[in-house]
Structure formats: structure tokens, C-alpha cells
Nucleic acid binder design. Structure first.
Lengths: 163, 163
DNA sequence: TTAAATGTCGACTGATTTGGTAAAGATAAA
DNA sequence: TTTATCTTTACCAAATCAGTCGACATTTAA
């Protein structure tokens, strides 16, 4: 299935854009700072999100990014399949051109696994996820005096690849 | 989620052992030949399957491998988590020690994704998969004069990493 | 007791992927 | 024309992957 850093970053970026949806264009630097991502690396991810019609970009002064569709119309599958080369677990499922399909004892199992993961990812929309995040945030701030978390800069929720 | 060749091979090996379950010990060379796997590489996978209590090995002459449990008691999750280092999609979900949990806009989504994938993989037992495979095989042989496929050597159901 | 048939373990390696940096450029507003 | 913004491409070090290899341990049969 191969969820790399691209998927992790892409989800953060998309959640960030959804969180600011309707509040105008969001700049590359700001998104990157809020989500703790290297802006240079973010460029690669943005290029893919744009190519797949998930975000719109405006160049020049006052430029920036925004979602191209409503958060409810964007699924986790859309996001991950936009940024990952091969999201399917194994090659033979991905290109559907496996010559040994009939003889491979594992082929159908992989097809099944690939299918169910896709189904579950399609079920989950950015809109739903954002709602859960906002509910959680509201509860947190109700019990503390922290400023709204969305204004804090975040750093990457992850250590080096191997613990 | 990171399904590498280890998962692909492990599934083939376990399906093979399930297919020959009750027919005595299966030798390393035979399994490898039937499933089109390098025996040397298979050693690494076998070590993990054994360490996780999925297969039993007997050394010396007349030695070999067999399943340690009934195919119905072995799930895809058991197999994949035995051979992969990090089966979870992202680090912060895997080690549950993420300090930024409360501030990460994506954390709960990853937790959800990891959970549902695990649930679906646990649902799928080697017994069920084997049954489907055997049904398929029966239908195939009913319409052709090919010898039973389980006796044919197989080669890996996959090309080079990049098409 | 020895030889043969098996599984076990760890070191090593070339190729690929990953995750990132950087430089030069395009575009639009001020 | 300057400045702020996104775009594209090239490049790179480090890690991972998918093995290969060799030495070794164990059991049985001759």
C-alpha cells in the first residue's frame, strides 16, 4: 500500500486547506509553516494535488492555494492516489496485466485486499475528517486557555523512519 | 502500509502450506519452486513466520515446514504483521507515542485508517482464501486438460518494480 | 560414525526509492 | 520594474529493498 511521507504531508495540506476553506487563498509558506513541512518538498506534493484537480493555485502576488472542490467531495482515496506512485499493495493488482493471474495462488487475495482498502478510503471524506478535528479542537480549548491551535505552527508528527 | 515483497512471498508461502496442510512436511526447496521464490530469500521470511508462531519447522533429513495452526485460525493480518517491520501507515500511529497527537490535524484520520485496514485484514482467514482458490482451480481444470496447477512451478506474479 | 539432507543465521551488496534541497524561471499585482 | 508568489527540473545523501552467499546446526539413514 506504500503510504510514504507524500501521503502524510498531502493529508495535512488538504486538511489545512479545508480548515481555511472559504477564507481566501492560502500561501505556500503559510501552509508549510502551519503544518511543519519543508516548503520546497511541499512543491512536489502540490504539483500532484493540482494535476489531479484537488487544489487550485494562483501565481503571482496575492497568489496561493485553495481547494478545487468542496471538502465533502474529496476522499482520502483521492488524496493518496494523487500523490503516491503505486498505491496498490502489489504490482500484479495495479496494472491488471499479470499473465500468471490464473496460476497465482495469492492473486485473488491481493485483489480483495486492494479493493477493500480502496472502498474504505473512498468512504472517508475530508469534510467528515475536518468536522471531527474541529470538534476535538473545540473540546480541548474549552478546557484550556491555549490559543486556537490552528494558529500555532506545527511540527511533523513523526520521528525518523526507524524508531 | 508498506506491503513489500516479504508480504507477497509470505502470503504465497502460507497459501502453499495451507494447500498442502495435512500432507506432511513441505521442504524449503519445494515450496520455493512451487511458488517461484528464491529459496535463500525465503529463509528470511520463514524465520519471521516461525518466530510469530505461524509455521513449525523440523530440521535435518525428512525435515520441512508445516502450518502451526489451522488455516482458519490464521488471518492476513497475522501473516503481514509477522513479516513487515512497520505495517502501519505512519510512524505516529505505530508507536502511539506521538507527542503532538493533540495538535496534529491528521492524527485521528491515520488512526482511523490504520484501524479499519487492520480490521479488514483480520477478517480474512487463510482458510477462506484457500477455499476460494481451490474452487477457482476446480473450475479451471474442469474446462481444460491442464494438469493440476498445484503441481506446476510458478514464477513470481510481478515484474520489475517500475513498469 | 559418517554422509547426506535438511533448516538457521548473519554478513554483505547493487539497485532503487525516499525525502529533501536548490536553482532558474514564470506570472501577476503593486 | 520590483516584489511576491507559484513551477519546473535537476540533483543529492541516506535508507531500504530484494536478494546472494557462506558457514553452521540438526537429524536421519546407511
Amino acid at each position: 500500500m506504500n503510504f510514504t511521507a507524500k501521503s502524510r504531508y498531502a493529508l495535512k495540506i488538504m486538511m489545512d486547506l479545508a480548515d481555511f476553506n472559504g477564507e481566501g487563498l492560502q500561501q505556500r509558506q503559510k501552509i508549510a509553516a502551519r503544518q511543519g513541512i519543508s516548503p520546497d518538498f511541499m512543491d512536489h506534493i502540490m504539483a500532484r494535488l493540482r494535476a489531479h484537480g484537488l487544489v487550485t493555485s494562483i501565481r503571482g502576488r496575492q497568489g496561493g492555494f485553495r481547494l478545487e472542490k468542496s471538502p465533502d467531495e474529496i476522499s482520502l482515496w483521492d488524496i493518496f492516489s494523487a500523490v503516491e506512485e503505486g498505491l496498490f499493495p502489489v504490482q500484479c493488482v495495479e496494472d491488471s496485466g499479470c499473465q500468471l493471474e490464473a496460476q497465482c495462488i495469492a492473486h485473488d487475495a491481493w485483489l480483495d485486499v486492494a479493493h477493500i482498502i480502496q472502498v474504505e478510503l473512498v468512504k472517508r471524506s475530508l469534510g467528515d475528517l475536518l468536522k471531527k478535528w474541529q470538534d476535538k479542537k473545540d473540546k480541548q480549548t474549552a478546557f484550556s486557555l491555549l490559543p486556537a491551535l490552528k494558529l500555532q505552527e506545527n511540527s511533523e508528527c513523526r520521528g525518523p523512519r526507524r524508531a
